[in-house]
Each structure stands twice: as C-alpha cells, then as structure tokens.
C-alpha cells in the first residue's frame, strides 16, 4: 500500500527578520552608549529649562556633594597624566609607575593632594570603597590646591571647559568657595550641570 504522507507544517519560524531587528537595535545602542562613570558620591542634580547639551570632550568636572565635599575629574587620560606630573613636581610627591597608572584610570577623586600617593597605592577595589575627604579648598597657609588643579589642567589642555555638578541641597557657601577659586584663576565662565525639564508656561 502506498503511504499517504500528510505534509507536516514546520513549527520553525523564520528568524531572519527578528535577527535583523535585534542587530539593528544593537548597533544603535553600541553607537549611542556612553558608559555611566563610576560615582564616588551620589549627586542629585537640580533641573532647569536649559537646553545646551554638555560637550563630550575636554571637560573639567567639579562635583559638589550634599555635605560640601568637592571632587575633581578630568575626562581625558593623557591630560590626567600630565596633570599628575605637574602636581608631583609642585607638591614633591614621588610616585611609582603603578601609582601613575592608577591615577590615569581615576575618573573622579577628592582629597588633599598630599594624600594622593597613599590612595593610589590601594587596590582598585579598595579605592572604590575608601572614603574620600574632598579637595582642600581652604587657602589658609598659602595652600592653593584647587587653584593649582585648575591652573595646571588648563595649561596642559587649553581647550578645557569647566563644568560644575552640584547636589540640589548643597549650600551656596560651598559653591561660592569653588567659584572663588575659579575666579582667582581667571575662569569666569563655567557650566552648571542640570537635568532637563519641560519649559513651563
């Protein structure tokens, strides 16, 4: 007897289209992504109707925590190294290559410059959790640490723009101290980082 075959419908679905979509999205995300930088301290920024997006490159970022501690960050790794060289000359720090490399990958930091070597000696995991005291802004005793940071960074990269990211609840006095230091170094233009808010009418 001849077999009568009932053609079975395959349950396999054509995946080509889905694959196309998946990779299209993937490409989009890869191209648009900018990794969230490691946060030393949580900062809740205020919102404003300002529409200017923050530039991608050449940024010197000061972060002010709610308690007034100030943190410093440069986006560009070669400039960070040059800055470190200048700082170690000014504050007579002696740093090993390993410590320099640790500084190169340091996104944000805030402490007295003289305590940098000890901090850089730590393992990356220890650094992530170690408490930081904030930059020394006080200028008592001819100590101009923040001003040196500003001056040296700008000398090494004259395209640098200054951005200030401060917490909503930070008291104005902390902000004012930083502005004062900036103005002492003839920086009169800076960007306050805010999140976008719809324009209310």
């Amino acid at each position: 007897m001849p077999k009568v075959k009932i053609p079975r419908k395959s349950t396999a679905v054509d995946m080509t289209a889905m694959c196309d979509v998946a990779f299209l999205l993937l490409t989009f995300f890869i191209l648009t992504t900018k990794f969230r930088p490691q946060e030393v301290v949580a900062i809740d920024i205020p919102s404003s109707t300002a529409q200017i997006p923050i530039p991608d490159r050449d940024i010197m970022l000061f972060q002010i925590a709610p308690d007034g501690k100030v943190f410093f960050g440069l986006d560009d790794q070669p400039t960070r190294l040059k800055l470190l060289d200048r700082l170690s000359a000014q504050y007579s720090l002696s740093l090993s290559d390993k410590q320099k490399d640790a500084f190169r990958t340091l996104e944000t930091w805030g402490m007295d410059i003289r305590s940098l070597p000890a901090f850089l000696e730590k393992t990356p995991a220890e650094r992530a959790t170690a408490p930081q005291a904030g930059l020394t802004i006080d200028t008592t005793g001819g100590n101009h640490q923040v001003e040196d940071l500003i001056l040296f960074s700008r000398q090494e990269n004259n395209m640098l723009r200054i951005a200030i990211k401060a917490d909503k609840t930070t008291e104005y006095r902390n902000f004012d101290k930083l502005i004062n230091a900036l103005q002492n170094r003839k920086v009169n233009k800076f960007n306050l980082i805010t999140s976008a808010r719809a324009k209310r009418e």
Partner: peptide, 30 residues
C-alpha cells in the same frame, strides 16, 4: 544569533546613560 543579539542589547540598554545632562552657562564678571 537572535538570542545573542538581544542579550547584548539588554546589556547596552542597561549600561547606557540616555538622558544627557544639560548645562547652564554662567558668566561672571572678571
């Protein structure tokens, strides 16, 4: 391949910062 694609998408979606912060320019007199 689709599985892999979506896995990577998920990763990038979570790792990305979408809302780029805006800045407010302040000029102070010298």
């Amino acid at each position: 391949m689709v599985d892999l694609g979506f896995l990577l998408i998920t990763f990038f979606m979570l790792a990305t910062t979408f809302n780029k912060p805006k800045t407010m320019e302040v000029n102070k007199p010298a």
